[in-house]
């Protein structure tokens, strides 16, 4: 075993100079939170594409699968992005744990403090703890699902997940947790680092406006998927396939996929379905 381990065990790791690590951990916590919050904004816009129609959502999904660039869908690309997000998420959770109340006494003290003080920013912090705790489980489950079954993202596949698989309450809870946690977190980042140097009142208003906007967008999106899922319940498992795309997009699609039916390559028949 190395010498440093024994020195650390003796409680002398910070002698004669203090460790630089806490500074880096603080930066990493802020940085990973910022990445996740910005990712969530982008993510929300992508999933909200369902509000523009099934074809819009299908096209965006396919774009991320490389369909328009690689000559075919590669859902593994989505898994790759999910793996990256999962890594940042785990790092952020690990670092944020340092700030959690870690004993009943601490939780009790903090709750009494927040309740008696009625100070908005302190109250927001305790909500960040609650929502962050919920996200340990909700976001982990969601990320795992997307990592392992990236092909199940699409207008019908996602809608079936909401309705026929009965996951809409899960997504509703996650939406509330993410939007509250991310909104408060971004506001706190600006307070923590003093950038941008705008007035606190303005930043607070902006924070609430953004939270309200993303919550409304998220609820509308969730509703849209539930509606499609309800209407599609009899055809559970069937995937969406648009007849046509906007012309410019059809040009990007692998050759022949959106050609007139007479020019289309015959759909390959699965070996098991072949007649003897």
């Amino acid at each position: 075993m190395s010498e440093s381990v024994f020195i650390a065990q003796a409680g002398l790791a910070e002698c004669p100079r203090k460790r630089r690590l806490p500074a880096r951990l603080d930066l990493l916590q802020s940085g990973s939170g910022l990445i996740l919050a910005l990712f969530m904004w982008g993510h929300m816009f992508f999933v909200a594409s369902i509000l523009l129609g099934e074809t819009a959502m299908w096209s965006i999904t396919r774009m991320f699968e490389g369909y328009f660039f690689l000559g075919g869908s590669q859902p593994r690309l989505v898994s790759g992005v999910v793996a990256g997000v999962l890594l940042v998420f785990v790092l952020h959770a690990l670092l944020a744990l340092r700030k959690f109340p870690i004993s009943f006494r601490q939780l009790q003290t903090m709750r009494a403090h927040v309740k008696a003080m009625r100070h908005e920013d302190s109250t927001l912090w305790i909500w960040q703890v609650y929502t962050g705790f919920a996200l340990f489980f909700l976001a982990s489950a969601h990320l795992y699902q997307m990592l392992v079954w990236p092909q199940n993202i699409g207008p019908y596949a996602s809608a079936d997940r909401m309705w026929s698989d009965g996951l809409w309450p899960f997504y509703l809870l996650m939406l509330l947790a993410v939007e509250l946690h991310g909104g408060i977190g971004l506001y706190r980042l600006t307070m923590k680092w003093g950038w941008p140097n705008a007035s606190r009142e303005l930043l607070k208003k902006l924070k609430w406006a953004l939270t309200a906007f993303f919550l409304i967008l998220g609820l509308a999106t969730l509703g849209a998927y539930m509606k499609i899922g309800f209407e599609h319940r009899a055809h559970y498992g069937e995937r969406y396939q648009p007849e046509h795309l906007p012309t410019w997009l059809e040009h990007l699609a692998p050759q022949g996929d959106f050609a007139p039916p007479s020019e289309r390559a015959p759909t390959p028949i699965h070996p098991l379905e072949r007649q003897p």
Binding site: P22, H119, D121, S122, W125, M191, W193
Partner: peptide, 29 residues
């Protein structure tokens, strides 16, 4: 400074209205 969670109640209650929010953010940077 890295333990500060920027709840900013200090800044809001300071009877002398010290610019604690700005000073702590500056020190943190």
């Amino acid at each position: 400074v890295f333990g500060c969670m920027s709840l900013l109640a200090c800044h809001d209650v300071c009877p002398k209205s010290l610019p604690l929010k700005t000073q702590i953010a500056f020190l943190r940077r």
